[in-house]
Design a protein around this nucleic acid. Structure first.
Length: 499
RNA sequence: GGCGGCAUAGCCAAGUGGUAAGGCCGAGGUCUGCAAAACCUCUAUCCCCAGUUCAAAUCUGGGUGCCGCCUCCA
């Protein structure tokens, strides 16, 4: 099997990817906290790890991919209070919108999607274990992790405890209630006691809720195991979130939590991180109103996942133009449909049905070239360059550039059979990146259809004015067949409505 | 202050020792009733300075600018 190179945050280097247990890959990505609509930054995270798990499967690994949903957290509680709903209602609402966004973007569902609230009992067990081993202590109704008791603390985020203490002391001074409860300013909460009326679960330490980091440690352990292959997430989770997960899990298990720690970079706006707190975000739903899922995906994949992407409507528009070219190239895969396939036959299948079909048809690395309808220097070179790029720490920027180069070959090819063959190879590889290639070039929105109708009716009026009633009647008849009733108003003017 | 990262054409963006992928925009041409698409051609020596090397965007040192994390954050 060809070796994939991955950049491991833990070592700060690219390393050959070798799963711990033969062909099995256990992969966990930190999912969203569901307290609001997801924005492009969340989309990038989901898209990147979606492509990674797709590529690992393509490469022949038996992947178990887990992405959690954080459905209990301070932000959820605060937002719910503001909106006058319960935290459960709020979390469920935004879980649904997240799923909707993911489906629209053709992000494959993970194999398991644990929610924090489903693991409270096990988190309590986890905490007890840490207390028993002397890595955690109870303070009033809270439980804290004793950072000083874990000698490797800081190995992921490349921090040393002394430096952290200097900074932490100043922060804690401003929250002096906390400083009294913690032995050490950098200690973090495993369990937070609930104040009056606050959301809480009963525990040996009274009513309360888990600390943020605890859920990922617990769910990783119980869904996948004590040591997994890949733990992934956004760059901002390196410290303290993943650092604290490591501290908890490794202190309890005396075993590495994950072999590879992978992190994606941010989406920026004017060179500044896109985030809720800055307020410079574009929600996935807003963007989907303007751009196709494939455009958004291509936009994300044209930059390497460890580099920041600078977002602007202009650059997304540029990607839309580029995406149109890829769709045109793909349309040669099924000769004949280019010209007569637009008679709405393609729309019989729903988007969801198309995606399921595509996933079923997805090729694997071992058998990929056997399926090649055409096998020559072009396809061989293309595949080699494409796979080489993906093997090299999932370099989707190079992989997509190869798609453009193959697209050029498709356009140039005069032999129809070859052209179609190239286009099929093109399609297979584009779908490996999760591009749907659902042809959106002829999708017309309501505003445009209205204007087109106005135009047609204007032409009909012109015909009537010229007493060309044959033409004007033909137009009306055809529109009627489409379900559009055309009504001339006595005294001039025309209006229409759907029958 | 500590840690990490980035700086490549008008814009976006790959490339980490052997002489600059790809996308968008633009220019000229072919095709076309006109246009669009397609096709052909053209558009950079890589922030600055010094060094290592036969050879550097790519390594080393220094400088400048920008960003992220260290507090919730994908």
């Amino acid at each position: 099997m060809t070796t994939i190179q991955v950049y491991n945050t833990l070592s700060g280097k690219k390393e050959p990817f070798e799963p711990l247990n033969g062909n099995n890959v256990l992969m966990y990505a930190c999912g969203p906290t569901v307290y609001d609509l997801s924005h492009l930054g969340h989309a990038r995270m989901a898209l990147v790890w979606d492509v990674v798990q797709r590529y690992l499967r393509f490469s022949g690994y038996d992947v178990t991919y887990v992405r959690n949903v954080t459905d209990v957290d301070d932000k959820i509680i605060h937002r719910a209070k503001v909106m006058g709903v319960t935290p459960e209602q709020l979390a469920r609402e935004y879980t649904y919108t997240f799923w909707h966004d993911m489906h629209c973007l053709n992000v494959q569902p993970p194999d398991y999607e644990p929610k924090a609230t489903e693991f409270i009992e096990l988190m309590i067990e986890f905490t007890k274990g840490l207390i028993d081993k002397g890595h955690a202590y109870v303070s009033e109704n809270d439980v804290y992790f004793d950072v000083a008791s874990f000698k490797d603390y800081g190995k992921l985020g490349k921090k040393n405890l002394d430096d952290l203490l200097v900074g932490a002391r100043e922060q804690v001074r401003s929250q002096n209630d906390l400083s009294e409860r913690k032995k050490n300013p950098v200690d973090f909460a495993l369990w937070k006691g609930a104040r009056d009326g606050e959301l809480g679960w009963s525990s040996p330490w009274g009513s309360g809720r888990p600390g943020w980091h605890l859920e990922c440690s617990t769910m990783t352990k119980h869904v996948l195991g004590e040591t997994i292959d890949i733990h992934a997430g956004g760059e901002d989770l390196v410290f303290p979130h993943h650092e604290n997960e490591i501290a908890q899990s490794e202190a309890l298990h005396n075993a590495p939590m994950a072999k590879y720690w992978l992190h994606n970079s941010f989406v920026q706006v004017n060179s500044e991180k896109m985030s809720k707190s800055v307020g410079n975000f574009s929600t996935i739903q807003d963007l989907l109103a303007m751009f196709s899922p494939d455009t958004i995906r291509l936009f994300a994949l044209q930059t390497h996942y460890r580099h920041p992407i600078d977002f602007s409507i202009e650059s997304l528009s540029a990607t839309r133009t580029a995406m149109a070219r890829l769709l045109r190239a793909a349309s040669y895969a099924n000769p004949g449909t280019e010209d007569n396939g637009s008679k709405s036959k393609a729309n019989v299948q729903t988007f969801g049905e198309q995606l399921l079909k595509q996933n079923k048809e997805q090729i694997s690395r071992a058998t990929a070239d056997k399926h090649d309808p055409v096998k020559d220097e072009t396809t061989t070179q293309f595949r080699q360059a494409f796979l080489e790029a993906m093997d090299n720490d999932f370099n989707t920027a190079i992989a997509t550039s190869q798609l453009f180069q193959l697209a050029d070959r498709i356009f140039q090819e005069e032999d129809k059979l070859k052209q179609s063959g190239y286009a099929q190879v093109f399609t297979q590889h584009a779908r490996m990146l999760g591009l749907t290639l659902v042809d959106t070039r002829r999708h017309v929105d309501i505003a445009v259809s209205e204007q087109v109708l106005d135009l047609v009716l204007q032409l009909r009026q012109n015909a009537r004015a010229n007493k060309d009633y044959q033409t004007s009647d033909l137009i009306r008849k055809q529109l009627t067949e489409l379900g559009i009733n055309v009504m001339d108003i006595t005294g001039g003017g025309t209006t229409w409505e759907r029958a």
